[in-house]
């Protein structure tokens, strides 16, 4: 059910190419900030404020680069945010089309169950902590696997190589330590 690496790689490469040919390179992690901003702004409307020539925020991160994040929070119907929602729909339809995931797999991945154990609580806790670290790191780096690793290296961006070196330097030892299959 997983595509062969040749057809899968070509397909994935064509999608990355079409994105840059038609609009701009793919990126995802910024939208976690935008979604945070939308939630925060719903609780406290002072998070995004308008200026004479656009949007800004008392939060220095949302206000950076001329308030482009603040603007996206104020107008969530923009390319990058809708893109991520569409990704979710595309993935969900693709999974349904191939028959959906088993009940066991929906609770936790098979590799986790076989190497670490069947405790849902443990799996959910590590997924939460992992998510925290991933997004904190992605925002510090200014991009994630999509924006830096795939789109960045595809464009021969120096930053993409620096990011990927860091990501694999940490990911490989952690995975080798955690997932020991006999």
């Amino acid at each position: 059910m997983t595509l062969n690496w040749k057809s899968g790689g070509v397909l994935l490469g064509v999608v990355f190419f079409l994105a840059v040919a038609l609009v701009k390179p793919i990126g995802v992690s910024t939208q976690f900030v935008i979604f945070d901003g939308i939630l925060w702004n719903a609780i406290n409307p002072d998070v995004v404020t308008t200026t004479a020539d656009g949007f800004t925020s008392p939060n220095a991160y949302l206000a950076k680069s001329g308030g482009k994040y603040a603007e996206a929070v104020a107008n969530p119907i923009n390319y990058s945010f809708i893109f991520v929602l569409a990704m979710m729909v595309g993935a969900a339809l693709s999974v349904l089309a191939r028959g959906g995931l088993s009940r066991e797999e929906r609770a936790m991945p098979e590799l986790w169950r076989s190497t670490i154990g069947g405790s849902s609580l443990k799996r959910y806790a590590v997924a939460f902590v992992g998510g925290f670290i991933v997004l904190y790191g992605a925002r510090l780096a200014g991009g994630c696997t999509s924006g830096h690793m795939m789109s960045g290296m595809m464009q021969t961006a120096l930053s993409g190589y620096i990011f990927s070196a860091g990501a694999f330097a940490a990911a490989v030892p952690v995975a080798m330590f955690m997932y020991k299959e006999v």
């Binding site: 995931l101 991933v134 780096a141 990011f163 694999f168």
Partner: peptide, 29 residues
């Protein structure tokens, strides 16, 4: 970029997800 890459890599290995694949996986159930 490098420090953030290290952090992302560690969390990626722990959880098995990066930002894009995480949202897709959640939508997959």
């Amino acid at each position: 970029v490098f420090i953030g890459g290290l952090l992302l890599g560690g969390g990626w290995a722990m959880s098995g997800y990066c930002p894009g694949t995480g949202v897709c996986a959640a939508a997959s159930g």
